[in-house]
Design a protein around this nucleic acid. Structure first.
Lengths: 353, 353
DNA sequence: TTGTATGCGTTATCAT
DNA sequence: ATGATAACGCATACAA
């Protein structure tokens, strides 16, 4: 008995020949039953007699049969796949987000079709992929927040959940941390710690979340009778934070407090303050970051940060997805869920506190 | 292998009614042409008259038609999806690996079905998913190296590429960095830097790559007339490295050189040496890590490490996959490619040159 | 309980 | 160049 069916020319993709996997018909033939009996044996609530089930399972084991889910996609119109669009995993925060999504989606029986979109120009190509595979829904953890992107996503006509974005549409819902409130909290914390010359380090202009953090920070500084002594712009990376501080120190007196748009930049900033400026954190400069990545807790940084509560955000996103998928067909988006951040104060703001 | 496992319960997406997406038949009807004409219009090398193409494209645009790839999977037996199995993305090294794979696979027209496998017990369930979606091949970046895992993977009867593992089988090829040679290089480097009491910090026992690094390290120490003054075991995490050093310092005199099985542990070790032991790195202890994660280059650590040359490893893995997919059907694995590591010396070993 | 027949949306083959 | 049709592997309605 041959385990392998005859090779079949791959007339579709033009790659190599393939081995056609064992099908339910093969199993049925060997077991001496109908193909539907095989299908029922492997269905969650198929009704088969113990005798038939036994024959089928024996034949399946002999042939190494694995049920094929592809035809079911055609029949049901459901792929049970969710497109997850990420924009680079070098930031540990997004790596964590992806990890949590993969686990949470698997736990409710959905699978992850991963799409890496380096620049927003590639988004259209990515969406063609997702459309072609008929994903049931999509999740994006991109920082792109253009109307164009929202339109392209909406054109898929499937439920979309954005992560930390401002995109909305009838198809798009958004889960985000309360960036503005966190910015205000950062201002309060630094003011409470005696900071008089606070500085703000923003991310790239296209990053809407960063803009909101800066807005909340500035407005609450004003409420406390303070104003930013300096404003920098980094590239959302360690090196971006390092370079921004180096540049600042070459031109101005150092600030005594610093709020960074994310932890990667904050780590770079701390290293630059210490190495380039010969300053101490927190004695000379109090630093606050955002994201609470694992590295924030490393003792060399001991960085005060805002935990976005990724688990709660992911749970909220999945709730939105599940609701949209379970409900009547058609757009069910347009909702925005704000998840509060949790301020994690560590040594970088505690000096003399 | 859970051959008898039932298909995943449909908790989410089986409930609501669905809107059947626009099909080529709908487009054909609107355009007043046959369905074949629509198919040919969207095929890479379909021959249609300009007039027909125009009618079809207009109708497609009107209806928002997107070609469905699912039926082609049934016909060709090719899904153009590759299962990528990861074991947690908290380690920046694996996040980078996944990122590079996603990009490289996309560039050759393959798509990533991501599977997060927290513990090796979940591997069987993961493999059922991959089998069900008829992925063309699989890539694993797991640290599991058991024969059982190899058998389960081989049962998929698709080309498999392991990343930094020792698994092989007729279906499995492996791409790995030369762990043992790197271990020897680490020994040489520390010896050259005047280390007399070298220590080795291993990863979990199941991590075969770690074992090889330790083996190369120990054997080359011996060749240099040295022996490990201490051997620790961490959990492949920052905290694991920190705790191991704290424990060591409470019981023994500190080593003057340390080779860690990965960078995360090395960062934890450095922080513990400095904070718990009051020691200086590199003045009192020279430290070498492995992986060359981005954090190794951060100035607080400035960690000497071994770059595994992820891009080269990924390229090699894809070459193995592409070869197996293009070649005749049947097992085409059993190959092992060793990619040399690149020693990146930084400040953590440079004191006193 | 079991088997038969149908259909999902596309591509490839064949006839026109 | 174009249209009709078979086939892919499974789930399901229906007949037995």
């Amino acid at each position: 008995m041959s385990l392998y069916a005859l090779p079949v020319q791959d007339h579709v993709s033009g790659r190599g020949p393939i081995i056609r996997p064992v099908s339910s018909i093969d199993v049925a033939r060997l077991a001496g039953v109908s193909q539907s009996a095989v299908s029922r044996t492997f269905a969650p609530d198929g009704s088969v007699s113990a005798r038939t089930r036994e024959k089928v399972l024996a034949a399946a084991a002999t042939l190494g049969y694995r049920p094929n889910r592809i035809p079911a996609i055609m029949l049901s119109g459901r792929s049970h796949m969710v497109g997850v669009i990420v924009g680079g995993l070098d930031n540990p925060f997004y790596a964590t987000v992806l990890d949590r999504f993969a686990v949470a989606l698997r736990d409710i029986g959905l699978h992850v079709l991963l799409v890496q979109v380096a620049d927003s120009l590639a988004l259209d190509a990515a969406l063609d992929q997702l459309a072609g595979y008929r994903v049931d829904a999509a999740v994006t953890a991109l920082a792109v927040g253009t109307r164009q992107a929202a339109d392209a996503l909406s054109a898929l006509r499937i439920p979309i959940v954005c992560f930390n974005s401002r995109l909305t549409s009838p198809w798009i819902s958004t889960v985000r941390s309360d960036n503005r409130a966190a910015g205000r909290d950062a201002a309060d914390l630094l003011a409470d710690r005696g900071v008089r010359r606070p500085a703000w380090m923003a991310g790239p202009p296209a990053n809407a979340a960063s803009r909101e953090r800066g807005r909340g920070f500035t407005e609450q500084l004003a409420a406390r009778g303070l104003a930013p002594a300096a404003t920098m712009r980094g590239s959302d990376t360690y090196q971006g934070g390092y370079d921004a501080i180096r540049h600042l120190l070459s031109a101005s007196p150092p600030p005594d407090g610093l709020f960074c748009s994310n932890d990667l930049m904050a780590c770079g900033a701390i290293d630059a303050l210490r190495q380039v400026g010969g300053l101490s954190v927190p004695a000379d400069v109090r630093v606050v970051g955002y994201d609470d990545i694992p590295q924030a807790a490393w003792h060399s940084y001991d960085l005060t940060s805002f935990d976005q509560q990724v688990d709660r955000m992911v749970a909220a996103a999945l709730d939105l997805l599940a609701t949209a998928l379970a409900g009547p067909p058609g757009p069910a988006g347009g909702r925005t869920l704000n998840i509060p951040t949790r301020l994690v104060e560590r040594g970088s703001t505690r000096h003399g506190g």
